[in-house]
Design a protein around this nucleic acid. Structure first.
Lengths: 117, 117
DNA sequence: ACAGTGGTTAACATAGTCGTTAACTATTTC
DNA sequence: GAAATAGTTAACGACTATGTTAACCACTGT
């Protein structure tokens, strides 16, 4: 059995699964944005965006940067760590790619039955 | 406004968001597996796993490889394309990283108010 | 033929996700 | 201090996702 608990990468992927949140990341990668700007950008009510931002915050993908002139506004920007972790996972998957192909060939060889016309 | 339709990467991320499916990928990256093996590996009923596999199939992350000796069994293996696409997206995000840091600095510079004690 | 096996589809229950509006907090501005 | 502004939390409804069991299809083996 496998039954592993959800990992950090799992949380990252879950956070990125929603198209709105994916879009938010795509906006934030260009520059930090205010919460209100993000809500407007996706034609969405502020509360809805606020909850998306909470998900992104909890997954570590974004953070508020303080130091705002107006203490009411919250500016969000990306954090690099989760992306790096995701990339590492991707690397692991692709690392086995060669083996995977080899295994496939071996498997095909072993179980072939001559079904081709 | 942004309002983009769900892209391929969106579908890939949605498929990978579920921990079970993430686990399936982690198993399949080592070697192809039969549907039943996967169900057993996650202590899950065959129908449940079957639907996860359908999601993974539709997103292009896995495929059945034919050529089975016993035509009842379905062996699943990974497909590389979606992973490559996901990596490309990651590259894009991280490509802006430098600019992002620069923009942050500029932003902080511009809006600083001397709030520090 | 017929019983058994591998897997998927169908029908259903439950739980989570995502949106809205209303109410609230904190800050700025007049 | 009162009104306006930025954002979040609360309460709710609609929809989707994920698991289960039962029924089904396709193939294998005697």
């Amino acid at each position: 059995m496998v039954t592993s608990p959800p990992t950090n990468v799992d949380r990252t992927l879950a956070a990125l699964a929603d198209p709105t949140r994916r879009g938010v990341v795509d906006l934030l990668r260009k520059q930090p944005h205010r919460a209100g700007e993000l809500a407007a950008a996706f034609d969405m009510s502020p509360p809805a965006m606020s909850r998306h931002l909470r998900v992104l915050r909890k997954s570590g993908l974004v953070e508020e940067d303080g130091l705002e002139e107006d203490a009411r506004v919250r500016v969000y920007r990306l954090r690099p760590e989760p992306f790096a972790a995701l990339r590492e996972w991707l690397d692991e998957v692709e690392a086995y790619w060669e083996d995977q192909l080899g295994a496939f060939k071996a498997h095909a060889e072993k179980t072939r039955k001559g079904k081709r016309p």
